[in-house]
């Protein structure tokens, strides 16, 4: 019993270590002090954050972050869907080669991915800006999309596609009507994964951006310059809360999906019996 309490106590202690810095940041978002000193509760930092006159840079960075994440995750999902179906239908050798190449951006040090793309854009004379950041994000997001669609393809019932062809669908139509619905959950989770990876990225972004800021590059420049602008504490807190909300929503979503899948399985079993 004592051992159990000690063991649990240890785990909670480590959890405290993991959450303490975040807690400090959240708590201090409710005080207006410029440095980390408590000066009474106030929502001033949050008001500042939403005051376009005071936080134009931050709001601009937020807008850029969302635009970049939106565009790059949509494009990487589209490329990823076709790539996954294509790779799935390849012969062993080329399949393996494609998967190996896909793993490079996942395994590579982020800083090397960043600088190597920077060299490429410089070579081609492409001016740095939103476009270069979006391309860079597509590079490291697409492999993750493929990786989340692949298992669904492997579980897929191939007969449905052939049945669709036999019943007179064109290959394209069969793809949309028979294959896509079966891999939809993989596509959705791949899309969300790409979106979060893009929002989260700093290292690859910083080497391929110029003239504009994303949230990460803004926060980094700000922290490196003069400590943190106080209203960024409020922004961090809000990001934390939205990440938590998103996680809860995704969890509920996947839970429901599991449930309905179980139901479907039960139904087909019932039919067979």
């Amino acid at each position: 019993m004592v051992k159990k309490i000690l063991a649990k106590g240890y785990v909670y202690l480590v959890l405290l270590f993991l959450y303490a810095p975040i807690a400090v940041l959240v708590i201090y978002s409710f005080t207006p002090a410029a440095t980390m000193q408590w000066q009474g509760f106030s929502l001033e930092l949050y008001q500042d954050l939403f005051n376009p006159a005071k936080s134009a840079d931050i709001l601009d960075a937020l807008k850029n972050t969302l635009i970049i994440a939106g565009i790059s995750s949509i494009i990487s999902t589209l490329i990823g869907i076709f790539a996954a179906i294509g790779i799935y239908n390849m012969k062993n050798r080329s399949k393996e080669a494609m998967m190996t190449v896909s793993k490079i951006p996942m395994m590579n040090a982020e800083i090397v991915t960043g600088v190597s793309l920077m060299l490429l854009f410089l070579l081609f004379g492409i001016p740095f800006g939103m476009v270069t950041v979006i391309i860079a994000h597509i590079v490291f997001c697409t492999p993750y999309v493929i990786l989340s669609i692949m298992p669904k393809l492997q579980q897929m019932d191939n007969n449905l596609y052939e049945a669709a062809l036999d019943l007179g669908c064109t290959p394209m139509k069969a793809l949309f009507k028979a294959v896509l619905p079966q891999i939809m959950s993989g596509i959705v989770s791949g899309f969300f994964l790409a979106f979060t990876l893009s929002i989260d990225d700093f290292v690859v972004t910083i080497f391929n951006i110029q003239g504009i800021n994303t949230l990460s590059t803004f926060i980094y420049a700000d922290a490196a310059k003069n400590g943190l602008t106080p209203s960024l504490r409020a922004l961090s807190t809000m990001i934390l809360v939205s990440v938590l909300l998103l996680l809860v929503i995704v969890n509920i979503f996947s839970h429901r999906e599991k449930k309905s899948k179980n139901k479907a399985v039960a139904k087909t079993k019932g039919v067979k019996i």
Binding site: A20, P21, I22, L25, Y28, I219, L228, L232, S236
Partner: peptide, 19 residues
């Protein structure tokens, strides 16, 4: 915590030290 941007986490660590 892995879902929180690591830049933010690092800044939070700095903020904690300062606090």
């Amino acid at each position: 915590p892995m879902w929180i941007n690591f830049l933010l986490r690092t800044i939070a660590t700095r903020a904690m030290f300062e606090a």
